[in-house]
């Protein structure tokens, strides 16, 4: 069966740590880092990248265009 797997590329310096993407992720892939970026924000990172399906919900709601989503089709 074909399965789509997603890979997130997050521009951590662009991220303002608002967290509106967190609720858009159905699989709790992303979390805010305890560390801060150059602007002092707790930036986004993929805490559980293996769970990502590439739905891109996080990228759609991100106000600052920090998230790029790549989709890869894999056979299982």
């Amino acid at each position: 069966m074909a399965k789509v797997r997603g890979t997130l590329v997050i521009d951590k310096e662009r991220c303002k740590g608002c967290g509106v993407c967190l609720g858009a992720c159905p699989f709790k892939v992303i979390e805010l880092n305890r560390e801060v970026n150059g602007k002092g924000y707790n930036y986004l990172y993929a805490a559980h990248p293996d769970l990502c399906t590439g739905c891109a919900g996080c990228a759609l709601v991100c106000p600052d265009s920090c998230i790029t989503v790549y989709r890869e089709r894999t056979e299982q």
Partner: peptide, 20 residues
């Protein structure tokens, strides 16, 4: 969209609407 950081506050809807 230009590759610049927006001045809006974190989470502001303007950024998303601009993008659309």
């Amino acid at each position: 969209m230009l590759d610049v950081l927006m001045h809006f506050c974190p989470g502001c809807s303007h950024g998303t609407i601009h993008k659309l």
